[in-house]
Design a protein around this nucleic acid. Sequence first.
DNA 1: CACACTTACGATATTCGTAAGGATT
DNA 2: AATCCTTACGAATATCGTAAGTGTG
Lengths: 300, 300
Amino acid sequence: MAQTNLSLRQLRAFLALAEQRSFTQAAATCHLSQPAFSALIRTLEGELNTRLFDRDTRSVELTAEGRLFAASARRLVEDFGAALVDLNDHVERRKGRVHIAALPSLAAGWLPAVFAGFRKAWPGIELNLSDLLSDACVDLVRSGKADFALASTGVSHAGLSTRLVCTDRFYLVCRKDHPLAAEASPTLKKLAPYPFIHMSRNSSVRQALEAALHPQQANTVLEVDQLATAAGMVEAGLGISVVPALTLFHFERKNLVTRPLAASGLTRKIYLVRRQEGSLSAAAQALHDLVIETMKARTP
Amino acid sequence: MAQTNLSLRQLRAFLALAEQRSFTQAAATCHLSQPAFSALIRTLEGELNTRLFDRDTRSVELTAEGRLFAASARRLVEDFGAALVDLNDHVERRKGRVHIAALPSLAAGWLPAVFAGFRKAWPGIELNLSDLLSDACVDLVRSGKADFALASTGVSHAGLSTRLVCTDRFYLVCRKDHPLAAEASPTLKKLAPYPFIHMSRNSSVRQALEAALHPQQANTVLEVDQLATAAGMVEAGLGISVVPALTLFHFERKNLVTRPLAASGLTRKIYLVRRQEGSLSAAAQALHDLVIETMKARTP
DNA sequence: CACACTTACGATATTCGTAAGGATT
DNA sequence: AATCCTTACGAATATCGTAAGTGTG
């Protein structure tokens, strides 16, 4: 008994017959020939080891046991259907949840448009974004709390797979009246004498910058956490700064100019980080694909 | 999607694999060869239109969709199993309810032993007895409130089937010191002169008696509702009475004697009444069979 | 190369629809 | 005679197990 094998179709057939009380009609409902339907009911009765219908040529009625089972069967078919619909909603991305982690610079400037596009395509999917510094992003992925991350780690962590999605060139930002504003594409060396406004030491922007400067030291005048703050400081004339292209929107201000740095190998690499094993949910995969696609479109 | 056909076995296989995370082991659990099991999972994934497991030669893990479905599947298999167990309990008469109606004379004297036997055989079945006069018994059956009845109706009602289960001979009951006590088997005529204690007019005992007497009139001294009352009255010397064999236990008292009436065609016929169409529940059928069997044993 | 999942394939079992049978009105 | 469920039976389909294939540590 514990190993009985019943199918959803048998339950549906049973319920159809219980409601319509006619083999002929119920068979039509189930898209079966009447004899096949009859056999199906007989099989079901055999598996349940009881007669479910009193039937003769004139009438078809549930037995007491049939009525009992009908109540269960109705609920089972409903629950089964609900489970299938729910699963399918997730598969078809009508429901679901995606949690990604991304560097604040991406979260503020570039991601919103991606999220908007995603939302439009899959309005039923709940989005969750952790805008954190690179290491924290990676930790969320490793712990499974985030589906994937956009971070600047080049280190290949065990169990994580990283994929380069963007190489972000750096730009000088300074006031229009600054001497460097005259240069179309200044070199790093030329920047050295001027007071410099840094991002905080653990930001990806700062780390890429330090790595590029290495033996050199910048003439630090100020260290801030937020790019918007840096923009304000530069505009106020406290100093210059150097930031990746994807953050330039912060510096689109009347009194500021931005200049690509002369080829210096100074770039910030952005990686998509995900767990090595375990596929993404349908929803996460969709966002993943959209991210990749959008990135490709930006820098072909 | 609405017409997907899943089987309980597929769900069990899916859950086995989700838990054991090994095709080989899960296949063994399901008593299948590993390739057959593999095909089964593949079919399931096809029907659900999604991959449920991330698998390679080294590891088998649920996908996000698989985890979602696993929760549903677990509950479905449980509910399904519970429904099957419940149904089987009814089929095997470990659970259930039987409601019968019976004449008070049977309810008090003869049925208790039958019920005791039934209870012993099927301790899980709830018993329900309506001890009512014949017409009320039949009404309960007709309305479907009782599974069957033991009544004295000979009338064949539409939609009901009646079956004679017992022909109850009548006995004189009187005091030991009554003149009739001397007769081993008095005739009805001899009773006529003596004061008579009747059952109420709508009782089956009274009706059978009136039918037998017909042109004659009894010398009624008293009319009572309960046989026990009649017994007390007879013992007190108020009169004699005539009652069916099955009620004689009421009259087994020190100062009373019972005498079978001489062949007079005076009998009370007891019928088992049930609905013509519609089988009995397993529990009701069991009680039905026990009633028939016990009746047969009493009067072979 | 050993282990674990997949593919290939012939054999078996199940399920189907058509046609004939039986019972009831 | 008409209607409805059941039985009979050959055909189509699905499922099984064995054996070979593939990929990974």
